[in-house]
Amino acid sequence: MNELVLTLGWLGIYAPVALGAAASAIGCSIAGQASIGAMLETEGGYGRFVGISALPSTMVIYGIVIMFTLNREVTPANAGGLFGVGFMSAISLYYTGLWQGRACASAINAAKEKPEIFGLSLAPAAIIEGFAVFAFVFALVISAGIPS
């Protein structure tokens, strides 16, 4: 039983990086594909499209920071806490990264038609980023209560 609990503890420590990386990869891929499509249709402003495509890459950075914060000797006493905080923040990063990629793709698709709405079209992606920051910050705050 202890082995399973310890395994869950380690899973909680590494999950934010693993799912954060997956989220960044998927999100950047979706937004990147949109920017490639937009480049076929437009005559300029390519740099902006590529710049937006990179927005979901922040998820893996948040994941790395959470991992370092959670990283400690895993014991039966703290494994549950590590698993709960790490795994749930990882799930949150995964979905925010995925949907941020879709929001970026829509922003690119809209901005290619109307360059004047470029800034405004990024608002949904920025709001999603805000939710990821919530998950990140409160993961750091709550992890302070997990025994070392």
């Binding site: 979706i30 594909q33 949109a34 920017s35 490639i36 499509g37 937009a38 076929l40 249709e41 793709a105 690119i108 698709n109 290619k112 038609e113």
Partner: peptide
């Protein structure tokens, strides 16, 4: 995604 973004 690429196909739809490449259409007007």
């Amino acid at each position: 995604v690429t196909l739809m973004a490449s259409l007007p």
